[in-house]
Design a protein around this nucleic acid. Structure first.
Length: 491
RNA sequence: GGUUCCUUGGCCGAGUGGCUUAGGCACUGGUCUGCAAAACCAGUUACGGCGGUUCGAAUCCGCCAGGAACCUCCA
């Protein structure tokens, strides 16, 4: 019983009901990272957003093929002939082979995404592994008359394209506006029109990454890899294309133009764009150098950080905002997320202690419906989470004896919370405790200590009882007294 | 300069015409506790400014102020 899913489509600038091309199947392509630097907080936004999307789709019984590329070639530092490939530049700097740099940062990216509990995509193609496919797309575009060769490079003819197709449908731009506002970067341009973009670029002699072609020894243009690889793995038309808002123009606009000429039809039906993470109100990014890497975040090793933040705190922080809103980094916001997540996880853990009654005076089904409706409404995770907290209140009230729950409702409650929190939102319980310490010996020892303290308490030996509690707190274990004795928790 | 977008209570962050007291964090009072913590109950603070449309606007329109993204690689 899949519920209708609504997705905000950048193409129409409105929410649309999602209808797959093939029943129960979803083809999803997302622009992945350029692997020439450590993954930072900004990278986690699209990764988590589209991880949420695939998890939700799978829960709704869709079969998903999720393709997320690794860009390891082709992006230029600057327009014009003296542009250096980013990968190559870094390689020269560090005296490493370009592929060595790519390999290192790809692994770093994988490691940190795994820590964030981001599932691996179905296919993770690399631009450098699809040079032939990209050249085929160039051939196709030249054959159809929408590209021209110029001094060993090949450019896409935007003006011609714009005569037959609306260039700018995605970003809402008009070609004449673009032309009137183009900066005069290079007077000796090989392009016929400033808005034209490269499909193949002749490599300068010092350029390390290069491949032979009939046009020149060179490398594929900025936007080509996504057109070539989405076609190869998802077909000429697929369902959803995702990526960061900063890629909307020119990257995705050019991708649409290339694919439209190559295949005679637009590539994706739905375009989804996640917004940026900001810091001090500004986009966190490479260019500004104001990014905080995930390594720094998890270790607390950055001047802007008051403490370390766990991977799940970061994940929860991101999920607490809607993916199309900017999200501003701050210590207080992260700390709030950390505490909220802890409260949520504790409630889930405490579900195991609930005893069912004959009757229920709580409505689990309503909370569940509202929560799933929110997720289906353009992945409104903050609203979904608000219902989870309503459910937390329900759980705690049952445990406090203010509410009762029937056996059936209790089963539904557990299934609901576990499904949404762990399967769909992809959270993990990082807080150890007597329920899931994973080490029964430690737990046995703790039970002994708790018993000793209980004995002290029954003897009104408050000094000993408090000493045990305080000393444990010093080593990061907290004792929580309850009606039915104490439980311990690893902080 | 052009295009697009944003401005919600102490902080974060949802909400797009009429009951959302959204939710989280913080704070205040109470319950529980040997004390505390946790938990529970109750409570406080809001819709950038000015006009307009409407029976009614945080939500639609216009103007103003402030901010952001894109126009060059960027998640």
């Amino acid at each position: 019983m899949p519920i209708p899913l609504f997705i905000y489509n950048t193409l129409s600038r409105s929410k649309e009901e999602f209808k797959p091309l093939i029943d129960n199947h979803v083809g999803l392509y997302v622009c992945g990272p350029t692997v020439y630097g450590d993954p930072h907080l900004g990278h986690s936004r699209p990764a988590i957003t589209f991880d949420l999307l695939t998890r939700f789709l799978k829960h709704q019984d869709y079969k998903v093929r999720y393709v997320r590329n690794i860009t390891d070639v082709g992006h230029l530092e600057s327009d014009g002939d003296e542009g250096e490939d980013k990968i190559a530049k870094k390689a020269q700097l560090e005296q490493l082979e370009p592929m060595e740099v790519v390999h290192y940062y790809t692994e770093r990216y994988h490691d940190y995404m795994q820590m964030l509990n981001v599932n691996s995509p179905s296919i993770e193609p690399r631009a450098s592994g699809h040079i032939i496919e990209q050249q085929e797309v160039i051939n196709s575009i030249i054959e159809k008359g929408y590209a021209y060769e110029s001094q060993g490079s090949v450019y896409f003819d935007v003006e011609k394209y714009n005569n037959d197709h609306p260039y700018g449908i995605l970003s809402g731009r008009k070609l004449e506006d673009l032309l009137s506002n183009t900066r005069d970067l290079d007077g000796q341009s090989e392009k016929r029109c400033p808005a034209d973009f490269a499909l193949w670029k002749k490599a300068a002699p010092e350029h390390i990454m290069r491949w032979p072609s009939k046009w020149s020894d060179g490398f594929p243009g900025w936007h080509l890899e996504c057109s070539a690889m989405s076609k190869k793995y998802l077909g000429e038309q697929f369902d959803i294309h995702g990526g960061g808002m900063d890629l909307l123009f020119p990257h995705h606009e050019c991708e649409i133009a290339q694919s439209t000429i190559d295949n005679g039809k637009a590539p994706a039906n739905y375009w989804m764009h996640n917004n940026m993470i900001t810091i001090d109100g500004q986009k966190m990014g490479k260019s500004l150098g104001n990014f905080i890497t995930l390594e720094e975040l998890f270790a607390g090793s950055h001047p802007k950080l008051e403490q370390a933040y766990s991977p799940m705190t970061i994940r929860f922080f991101i999920l607490q905002a809607h993916y199309r809103s900017t999200l501003d980094f701050s210590n207080s916001a992260l700390q709030a997320s950390e505490k909220g997540l802890k409260r949520l996880m504790e409630a889930i853990q405490n579900m195991g202690n609930i005893e069912a009654s004959e009757t229920s005076n709580v409505n689990i089904d309503e909370l569940k419906q509202k929560c799933f409706t929110a997720l289906a409404d353009d992945l409104n995770s903050p609203i979904a989470i608000s219902y989870l907290f309503d459910t937390v209140k329900v759980i705690n009230n049952i445990l406090a004896g203010n509410n009762t729950i029937s056996n059936d409702d209790l089963s539904e409650l557990k299934l609901f919370m576990n499904t949404v929190c762990f399967d769909i939102l992809g959270l993990e319980n990082e807080f150890g405790g007597s329920e899931n310490s994973g080490d029964s010996k430690i737990d046995d020892v703790m039970q002994l200590i708790i018993k000793l303290r209980a004995d002290a308490k029954s003897n009104k030996d408050w000094g000993t009882a408090d000493k045990i509690r305080d000393e444990l707190a010093n080593i990061g274990i907290s004792i929580k007294d309850g009606k039915d004795g104490a439980v311990w928790e690893n902080n």
